[in-house]
Design a binder for these strands. Structure first.
Ligand SMILES: [Zn+2]
Ligand SMILES: [Zn+2]
Ligand SMILES: [Zn+2]
Ligand SMILES: [Zn+2]
Lengths: 140, 140
DNA sequence: CAGTATTATGATACGGATTATCAGTAACAA
DNA sequence: TTGTTACTGATAATCCGTATCATAATACTG
């Protein structure tokens, strides 16, 4: 089985494991996501899936984000992008010029959060971090 | 001069220093921001400034964010909030239940970014980090 | 297999949030 | 003061996402 097929399999089985029905539109969305070379917007998926209703695309994305199979990235402006959560928890760099997204992992962030937990009021339930860059394609 | 007057002064002079005209609507927006006890949305300002056009409120907020006088915070859902950048660079905790925003500073993040700069493709031009919490009012 | 209950779909309308338009107005330099 | 230019604000338009709801697909039961 190829890596790509494995990823689709993971997306589909993630939904199946949660008790959701494996419908054709959901399979189509999973396949479309696997063929995205880079991070994508909901609208990107809608365009590549004219046969699937917009509402279903948005609903399926939300399911996959909730199950952790997709990362939702806040962009400086405009619609969020999504990327496959291939390597578990990680963060992203986003080129502010061309929009290219890359992953990175850094345990320093998580260590910082653990020390922060002792200082602040309340319980940490999540975090988000994006690093904005000029990528080497855009600013050589 | 009170601290509050100083903050408004800073907002206004920030715009003046950039060569923007000091108009009454802009002064009104600056004054409204200074009277916000907590982080606020663009709509909060519009409501407290019925005499100022919506577009002008949004335009002034954008100017102040661009100059660094205001922080723009991505919320898990809904419209972004803004807060005065009183203490220089900092990050935020956001209660996912009541929306209360608090500031924190942590040099660990910045240290991580410096080491990250060596690993990644391109130049870091900015970053954003929000820590989501259940605050002690909401989950005692 | 039916037959039935449940869930999912998708066309469409709707909503909130932000931006574009553009004629009129106000700031400010000369 | 006067002319240039930036700014304003009513409104329309846009963008992004969600609610509705009749229809269809799926799973369950006998
Ligand atoms: Zn780039
Ligand atoms: Zn993290
Ligand atoms: Zn709270
Ligand atoms: Zn920082």
């Amino acid at each position: 089985m190829t890596t790509t097929e494995q990823m689709r399999h993971d997306l589909i089985t993630t939904l199946e494991d949660r008790g959701f029905r494996l419908t054709k539109p959901r399979r189509d969305v999973a396949t479309a996501i696997e063929t995205q070379a880079d991070a994508f917007t909901a609208e990107d998926l809608c365009e590549s899936l004219p046969a699937v209703g917009r509402a279903t695309v948005y609903r399926t994305i939300k399911l996959l984000v909730d199950t952790g199979a997709l990362c939702k990235l806040a962009m400086p402006d405009g619609a969020p992008k999504y990327s496959l959560a291939r390597v578990g928890h990680h963060h992203h760099t986003v080129c502010v010029r061309c929009g290219k997204v890359s992953d990175f992992r850094d345990t320093t962030v998580e260590r910082m959060l653990r020390s922060l937990a002792k200082e602040i009021d309340g319980q940490i339930v999540g975090h988000r971090m994006e690093v904005y860059v000029d990528c080497s394609d855009c600013v050589p």
